[in-house]
Write a protein that binds this DNA or RNA. Structure first.
Lengths: 206, 206
DNA sequence: TCATATTAATTGACTGACCAGTTAATTTTG
DNA sequence: CAAAATTAACTGGTCAGTCAATTAATATGA
């Protein structure tokens, strides 16, 4: 096989290698993943990787940059801003959870996390995920507080931080620790669980 | 130097190697940590590691088993069971946070987490940390609910899960993501932050 | 319409470095 | 001295990365 600049047959080799690498990195970790592993997963020979990528590190960067779910988070807003807290928060947290717990994003998280754990500076990715959701939550809470739908003494930033941390902790326990006491819930149930304990502190009156 | 079965001079070589290994594993990850690294950190030559440990894997196991903070969690209870929720929860969460965010435990978490991320089954450790705290929290909440100090409709298990997940998420964001928006808080402030948004849903009346 | 030239894509064999683990020799200590 | 502790040199294997050779899609020309 050769010369397939843009033609039929297998789609873009580069993408194919990135996909294979993501799977292998997630399964074995970057350090333990060999070029042979990646090549086998992609159905090519190890040498070919260096036709498309300068070195293993560059392949990792390509994986991280091109498989980031950041674009998915752009479309996170459509939830109705006028809905009451219980509905709005449930909707937006479910959306976020569905994106994050998709197979591809979890693979990316596994890959990035273990690099992040040891020195390696990942450009700017995880610093973009959470602030995105936090900003939306914060904006909504401030709006609803003005309208009197949320207690006056609530600090939107603090609540958003706690809410997000709780969700993140749950995802960690599910996907990394494989904690059965938290794996038994569906996405909807998880969000309901969190909101059930947080909402009473948000809503006015009683 | 030789023969120091129990005598003076440097303390136990074995412990010394374990400490060095923990530091190097945390810094570079198990896969990337070389015996040379560990030996340098311990001030010995690489070969000596194999006098005390069968192989690298056995060293990792020794690190995990002997540096587990499980024993520290045994003494977690002394908090006053009769104190009101705001005091009790603040005290016990601060205790837990202080243990977990100590240098040694964070190093262990870095080490174990990256193994846990990729296939490797860690015996039974992280499955013991959290349940320990959860059990204490749950027991306390049930007790105080009977006394009417906690709302009747509160589910102790669910609240404990959410509380713990929030704390875990915060620790992750601090220690792994190095999220400045959450690093600026002291341990006490962090716990206050979480309780401020959770307590209103727990306490009766309003 | 067929041969041939051109070039991108791909292979597989190779290399130099490094690393986990071994061992024989050496030092220390009791 | 004898046992325990430690070293230094070594080994076999693996892996990231290189490269010359090969293949095949396409373009060119007659």
């Amino acid at each position: 096989m050769a010369r397939r600049p843009k033609a039929e047959g297998s789609e873009d080799r580069r993408e194919q290698i990135i996909d294979a690498a993501l799977r292998v990195f997630a399964r074995k970790g970057f350090a333990r993943a060999t070029n042979k592993d990646i090549a086998r997963e992609a159905g090519i020979t190890p040498g070919l990787i260096y036709y498309y990528f300068a070195d293993k590190e560059a392949l990792l960067q390509a994986v991280i940059e091109s498989r980031s779910p950041l674009r998915l988070f752009e479309h996170l807003e459509p939830a109705q801003w006028d809905a009451p807290p219980s509905e709005f928060l449930h909707a937006i947290l479910c959306q976020a959870l569905n994106i994050i717990e998709s197979e591809q994003v979890i693979s990316l998280i596994r890959t990035v996390l273990s690099e992040l754990l040891h020195g390696e500076e990942i450009p700017l990715l995880p610093k973009l995920f959470l602030p995105r959701i936090i900003a939306v939550l914060q904006r909504y809470l401030r709006l609803q507080r003005e309208r009197g739908m949320v207690r006056a003494e609530v600090d939107p930033e603090e609540v958003a931080q706690v809410l997000l941390s709780a969700m993140m902790g749950l995802v960690m326990r599910r996907q990394v620790l494989r904690d059965t006491s938290v794996l038994r819930y569906s996405h909807e149930e998880l969000v309901s669980l969190v909101l059930k304990t947080l909402l009473p502190g948000l809503l006015p009156a009683s």
